[in-house]
């Protein structure tokens, strides 16, 4: 019956927010009226978040987050476990809607359109803002059907030939085509972990979304598969806007143009990646990237 418990993967559980937030904030250099430092706003913003607060029941998971996500850029979101980065990411295509008791305040827009306005259709939004999850989650169907699923439900392909082309194109862009072209009709779940994750990326890009959200896409993969996905993110960023949550700071440094550091539900700092990792503005960011906590 408890539907809220069904979305386990990548969802912060309530216990993640049972912490010393208000009491001990001063100890770790966080003040109550914290204002994000760095370059929050940028010129060519694809998505904008303004004063976003997210609650799970009575617990506040995200405090007053304001940030822009640049078009055809990769923004990495880093921070210690339970800092709310996944929660924030999921609010960008309203995946939090599926969680009972999750409430969102503030203003999130894509190309100026309000995500949470009653006029916006959530199905259309998710076609525009795709998502790749922490654990590879291909459908228990064939490789072909996995990639063809999005085009099919959104009615993007007129004919079978169109659909075949879309599937091939997506698999090529995900760098998976050569490995699976001879077994398109075998189960997607039979692939290796890294291949499954690339299949999930192929599935996400098959509907040509404008933004791709990635929630720790490499955390379940080995270094070789991770490197493969990172290359892919780099390639995809020429055509797509990407927001990636990661625990791996090297990964953030390698793939992103901008990095946002979250701490205890607050956005501490947003700056160009190079600056965050070489010359962070905020002392908390510095502590985190130098490994003092996290």
């Amino acid at each position: 019956m408890n539907t809220s418990a069904t979305f386990g993967v990548g969802t912060p559980s309530e216990s993640d927010f049972r912490d010393t937030r208000d009491g001990d904030m001063s100890d770790i250099g966080l003040t109550k009226g914290h204002v994000t430092v760095g370059s929050v706003e940028i010129q060519a913003a694809k998505m904008t978040a303004r004063g976003v607060n997210i609650f799970y029941g009575d617990k506040q998971a995200i405090h007053d987050v304001t940030v822009d996500i640049g078009k055809n850029q990769v923004i990495a979101m880093i921070g210690p476990s339970g800092c709310g980065k996944s929660t924030f990411l999921r609010s960008l295509n309203r995946m939090n809607d599926t969680i009972d008791g999750c409430k969102i305040e503030g203003d999130i827009r894509i190309d100026g359109e309000d995500l949470y306005s009653p006029k916006l259709d959530v199905v259309e939004l998710r076609a525009r803002v795709g998502m790749v999850f922490q654990k590879p989650n291909p459908f228990p169907k064939s490789i072909y059907d996995n990639v063809a699923y999005g085009p099919k439900i959104h009615g993007l392909a007129e004919t079978r030939v169109d659909l075949d082309e879309m599937v091939e194109k997506s698999l090529r862009r995900a760098g998976l085509w050569d490995e699976v072209k001879d077994r398109l009709f075998q189960a997607g779940t039979g692939l290796s972990g890294g291949q499954q994750q690339r299949l999930c990326i192929a599935r996400a890009i098959a509907v040509s979304p404008e933004v791709i959200l990635m929630d720790e896409p490499c955390s379940a993969l080995d270094p070789i598969a991770t490197a493969r996905i990172e290359e892919l993110i780099e390639e995809l960023s020429h055509n797509f806007t990407i927001a990636i949550v990661t625990h791996n700071m090297q990964q953030a440094a390698r793939v992103s143009q901008r990095t946002a550091y979250f701490h205890l539900g607050r956005l501490i700092e947003v700056n160009p990646t190079e600056q965050v990792f070489t010359n962070p503005e905020h002392s908390l960011t510095e502590s985190y990237i130098t490994g003092r906590f996290g």
Binding site: V9, G10, M95, R126, A127, G130, F133, Y149, R203, A204
Partner: peptide
């Protein structure tokens, strides 16, 4: 639950 999320995430 991952299958449900995958479907919803695809805009189903």
């Amino acid at each position: 639950p991952s299958i449900r999320e995958a479907a919803l995430g695809m805009g189903a």
